[in-house]
Amino acid sequence: MVSSLKIKVEEREGKSFLRDAYVTQPFRITPVGQYKSDGAAYLMITSTSPGILSGDVYEIDVTIEKNARLQLQSQSYQRLFNMEGSASQTMVVNMGKSSSFSYVPHPVVPHEDSNFKSVNTITIADDCELTISEIITCGRKHYGETFQYAHFQNLLEVYHHDRLILKDNVLLKPELMPLHSLGLLEGFTHQGTLTYLNTKNENVTELVEHFYKELENLTDVTYGISEIQTDGFVIRILGNGGEQMFNFFKKVEESLWEKAVAISN
């Protein structure tokens, strides 16, 4: 089943708002920032489906107009059910000048024999900020389905002035890849990646140092944070629980979001 979600967020007199929305089953879009006072738009993607099924094609299109700010949220863990075939998701994000977009979704749980590919393409204009993350679990560990999925891939590409400035490709195929080995998951069961970048010419060295100290407070994980060629950084965490990673990424998101609000004010 092909399912679509299209939203456009605009800004007027310092307030960002949902200008247009179009959804098909099982998608819903819900405003969740009624009590926020920073002028940004807060929207949650919800679904009437318990998860992604074989043959599902999810198409998400997000437009953030000039000066608008959007924090997109997920409803819950994303389950990828047993599949005879495969499923896919594409997310296309277009960011206008001086806009901000942040998306830190819940972890993905691939069930046995699931086959899933996600492609995220983001076009970012000048004077923008972007935060996006992903957490992939080993599957239903307590059901004995550790690394029993067939294929998982998440591709992120970010373009600025028609030039590719960031590409991150996570590809996991347990049957063909020694996931427990050095250079892959190294004995851990969960992997998380958070990417931040800006086109404001704002140096991120102090942010990298700050979040590295925050990472030191995590237990039973291994981690790294790297400054990228553009003004940004990537955090990667290997661990054994999705909730710990998700809570940390939400903390990073909140810190970056509050920083942007403080600067704009």
Rank of each mutant, 00 (worst) to 15 (best):
Y223S: 13
T146C: 14
C138M: 12
V261I: 15
N240F: 09
D61Y: 14
G51M: 06
A125Q: 13
E13N: 15
N265M: 15
T63C: 14
S100N: 06
E112T: 14
V92L: 07
R79G: 01
D126Y: 02
T195H: 03
Y35F: 13
I235H: 02
Y22D: 11
G33H: 06
S47I: 08
G192V: 04
V23M: 08
D231E: 14
L80A: 02
Q89T: 05
N154P: 01
L179S: 09
L70E: 03
Y35V: 10
F81H: 09
K141D: 06
S4M: 11
V204M: 10
G39T: 05
D127T: 01
V158Y: 03
Y149Q: 07
Q153E: 14
F188M: 06
K167S: 11
E175R: 15
E214P: 06
L18K: 06
Q148W: 05
M44Y: 03
L18N: 04
L215W: 08
V158R: 03
S226T: 15
I60S: 00
D20V: 10
S133F: 00
F246I: 05
V108W: 00
G183K: 07
I60Q: 01
N67V: 07
E175K: 15
P31V: 11
I237T: 03
E145D: 10
Y35K: 15
D20H: 12
L194Q: 01
N217F: 11
A41C: 15
Q89K: 11
V234D: 07
T189P: 00
G232C: 08
F211I: 04
A260K: 05
Y58F: 13
A68C: 10
